[in-house]
């Protein structure tokens, strides 16, 4: 964060400073938002593969539930992405 504030401090133009801060904030927002869902999706898929390997006849059901779980988990990352877009471009 100190590096960011140093770069922001160097900017002459207040518009420039604003853009730099927005870009840095946007990057941080998306990066942080991606951590949790990344772990979560990995966990879901890993467990599903385990379940499918143990019981191949239940693979269809497990796959449907897996997609549902992924969809719910992924929503958090996508909201982070929307925040990124809002910070960067709005």
């Amino acid at each position: 964060m100190e590096a960011f504030s140093a770069i922001v401090a160097q900017a002459q133009d207040p518009d420039d400073a604003k853009n730099i801060a927005a870009a840095a904030g946007a990057g941080m927002a998306y990066g942080l938002a991606a951590i949790g869902p990344g772990i979560g999706i990995g966990y879901i898929v890993g467990k599903s593969v385990e379940a499918m390997a143990r019981q191949p006849e239940a693979a269809g059901m497990v796959r449907t539930t897996m997609f549902l779980g992924i969809a719910f988990t992924e929503a958090l990352a996508l909201i982070g992405f929307v925040v990124f877009i809002l910070l960067k471009f709005a």
């Binding site: 969809a71 719910f72 992924e74 929503a75 996508l78 909201i79 992405f81 929307v82 877009i85």
Partner: peptide
């Protein structure tokens, strides 16, 4: 909200 954002943000990304 999540139905909307899921579809929109995935395609936008």
């Amino acid at each position: 909200f999540s139905l909307t954002v899921r579809l929109m943000a995935n395609m936008l990304a």
